[in-house]
Nucleic acid binder design. Structure first.
Length: 430
RNA sequence: GUGGGUAUAGCUCAAUUGGUUAGAGCAUUGGUUUGUGGAACCAAGGGUUACGGGUUCAAGUCCCGUUAUCCACCCCA
């Protein structure tokens, strides 16, 4: 082994330099401000949980291979959170009688999964979780749809580049149980194949179903199902709750004028705990981003793991990595500017205390102010401010102090005026 | 976990099918210009060629291993 420490971050993680942080914050601030606009409240949970919380809920695969877990010094089995939902369920179960329903909660936080990193997928990632709890009807879905579309509008995403694909687990249940009459084991395999339908292509898909020993008739039923439209659902609406709900959901969405939403029979969302509507959003304007930007759905038996009665819930997990890739693909990341508003150069170290006093005054007025700390050549000080994209430079030397004024320079236009400090503050703030 | 591609300066890439002291552009720092940035010119710093081993008179170049990264599979809460 080498003696020197590596400068690269741990596999699947990324260092975020200030420049990249501006991009991240653009995404997170958008998620957050739009959520607040809809009346969602922010909450948080610990990064670590008892491993049992994840084993109780998820399949073996997740707990055994993709979970970062360890034993703490007290012998407890601990895991770093790979998702938010179990923690959210715990929080709600713990105080259920004290919480006023419905809850509209969101969180933006880090998660860790032991995965093989590739485009759109890292071991460390940040995700927005936004959920509505306590609304059993489709108005929960519609609220989240409206939130999503508001965020996409805020991102200035072109309408033709994204699509929310919607399906219902109840509809899939109807297919598996009433039409195909599959065993539990085959349900899982066929479900996964359906999820991969678009990727596999029809031929490979049919080939795989044959391998599973499905009959000709069953395979045709599946293909017919995958081609079905909302119109087709009307024919089975009296037999399938899923079909009925989807018809109602799209009717209401139309009434609200919602766009970029489409019924897609191949959306599955794993096999874990979803109970009704399932949704995913995809980039449909390019081939760069094959992964879903977010996924989510309805999970009405959220609290069952704590032995409590049902609480209807609908929510999504929206990943930072796929979102950044999407925004980059369409050039939607705004030119990053510093948050600093004004730079104060320093001509002589004797003026240091004086300049600091001015800076303190500016900061008190809410103006983000950076000062020069060593009296280097003035040209280089301007160069520094210019490189950091600071919009204003307030020049104060002996001459200005004697005149009881300041030189305020606009770094974009180069324009410069001798004004009073008060006038300068006005200009910077406007 | 399985399979494949890649690895040379902070970034993008050169380096005669194994041959002297591994180069360039951009970026960084300084100077031309001691109170006026963006341009131009000049200069400087920056490399154990990812790491370890092997073949050879000679390895950035060929071989093996490790690590990282990208892509696909698996999975995707």
């Amino acid at each position: 082994m080498e003696n020197k420490l590596s400068t690269s971050p741990y596999k699947g993680t990324t260092d975020t330099y200030p420049e990249d942080m501006l991009t991240n914050n653009y995404i997170f601030d958008t998620w957050k401000s739009v959520a607040q606009r809809f009346g969602f409240e922010e909450y948080d949970t610990p990064l670590i949980e008892e491993t049992a919380l994840y084993i109780a809920k998820s399949g073996d695969e997740i707990a055994s291979t993709q979970l970062y877990n360890f034993v703490d010094k007290g012998g407890r089995e601990i895991a770093i959170r790979p998702e938010m939902t179990p923690s959210l369920a715990r929080m709600i179960a713990a105080k259920k009688n004290d919480l006023t329903l419905p809850l509209k909660w969101f969180n933006i936080g880090k998660y860790y999964r032991y995965e093989k990193p590739q485009r759109g997928r890292r071991r460390e990632f940040i995700q927005l979780n936004i959920d509505i709890l306590g609304i059993p009807t489709l108005e929960a879905e519609l609220e989240i749809f409206q939130y999503i579309l508001a965020v996409m509008e805020e991102f200035k995403a072109p309408k033709e580049t994204y699509e929310i694909r919607v399906n219902s687990r109840y509809l899939l249940d109807y297919l598996f149980e009433e039409i195909l009459r599959l065993s539990e084991e085959k349900k899982a395999k066929v479900g996964r194949a359906i999820d991969n339908y678009t990727k596999l292509g029809k031929e490979a898909f049919v080939e795989y179903l044959k391998e599973l020993e499905l009959t000709e008739k069953q395979i045709n039923s599946i293909l017919e199902f995958l081609n079905s439209t909302l119109e087709d659902l009307k024919k089975i609406a009296d037999k399938s709750d899923g079909a009925k709900q989807l018809i109602e959901l799209f009717a209401k969405a139309e009434e609200l004028g919602l766009t970029n939403i489409r019924f897609e029979p191949s959306i599955m969302r794993g096999l874990a705990y979803y109970t009704g509507t399932v949704i995913e959003m995809f980039d449909i304007g390019s081939k760069e981003n094959p992964r879903a930007l977010f996924g989510g759905g309805r999970y009405d038996d959220l609290l069952s793991m704590f032995g409590q009665e049902e609480l209807p819930a609908f929510g999504i997990g929206w990943g930072d990595t796929t979102t950044r890739d999407y925004l980059e693909t369409y050039g939607l990341i705004p030119e990053t500017k510093t948050d600093t508003k004004v730079f104060l150069p320093l001509f002589d170290i004797k003026l240091y205390a004086y300049i600091q006093k001015i800076a303190k005054g500016l900061r008190t007025k809410g103006i983000n102010t950076e000062t020069q700390l060593t009296a280097i050549k003035f040209g280089n000080q301007l160069k520094y401010a210019s490189k950091k994209n600071i919009p204003w430079v307030m020049i104060i030397g002996e001459d200005e102090i004697n005149a009881k004024k300041v030189q305020l320079k606009n770094m974009e236009t180069g324009e410069q005026n001798l004004v009073t400090l008060e006038e300068a503050i006005e200009t910077i703030k406007s």
